[in-house]
């Protein structure tokens, strides 16, 4: 499965990824329309973090042993055994925030604008590539096949 990774040494905190994410998850998928008609009601699925000169954008890691899946009392959060993707079914979600409590990256967000539900990165299931990665002008976000990455050396 392809996963999104950040490289903090390249991130400039330009926030283009956030805009792309919002638009990708809007109804119209058009930036002007999305901002004019839907904006305050859209929740981005990624978080841009900054500390001194460092920054990165982080979104759902689609963990192999996902704590959010273990914690979900509704069955809304599930791991697709075939693709490895962690999916969230907003229809099932009751907004109990067990996932918010469990995600060690803090990348599950609370969408409280309509019915209270959790929301998170879905790897842009409607598009070919994640739109945050497409939008990044400096390759600070990349999308790579997990199995091509040597996990052994990292922690």
């Amino acid at each position: 499965m392809k996963k999104i990774y950040f490289k903090e040494e390249y991130c400039m905190a330009c926030r283009l990824c956030e805009i792309a994410c919002l638009v990708a998850h809007s109804k119209s998928k058009k930036i002007i329309k999305a901002y004019k008609e839907e904006f305050p009601n859209l929740t981005p699925r990624l978080i841009i973090e900054q500390k001194g000169p460092l920054s990165f954008a982080i979104q759902c890691r689609h963990c192999e042993d996902a704590p959010c899946v273990a914690a979900c009392v509704t069955g809304a959060m599930k791991r697709d055994m075939k693709t490895g993707e962690v999916t969230h079914n907003a229809e099932k979600c009751v907004g109990c925030w067990m996932c918010i409590m469990s995600c060690p990256f803090g990348v599950i967000l609370m969408d409280t604008k309509g019915k209270k539900v959790a929301t998170k990165c879905d790897l842009c299931e409607d598009a070919n590539t994640p739109q945050c990665v497409e939008a990044c002008p400096n390759e600070a976000l990349i999308c790579k096949e997990e199995k091509n990455i040597d996990k052994g050396k990292s922690k």
């Binding site: 990774y5 903090e8 973090e49 500390k51 890691r61 963990c63 803090g106 990292s154």
Partner: peptide, 21 residues
């Protein structure tokens, strides 16, 4: 502004930073 960025690099999960990239 507190976030995952405060977690020291060496303690971060393999899910964020595979060594090769």
């Amino acid at each position: 502004k507190f976030g995952y960025i405060y977690v020291p690099k060496e303690s971060r999960s393999k899910e964020t930073a595979p060594s090769e990239i």
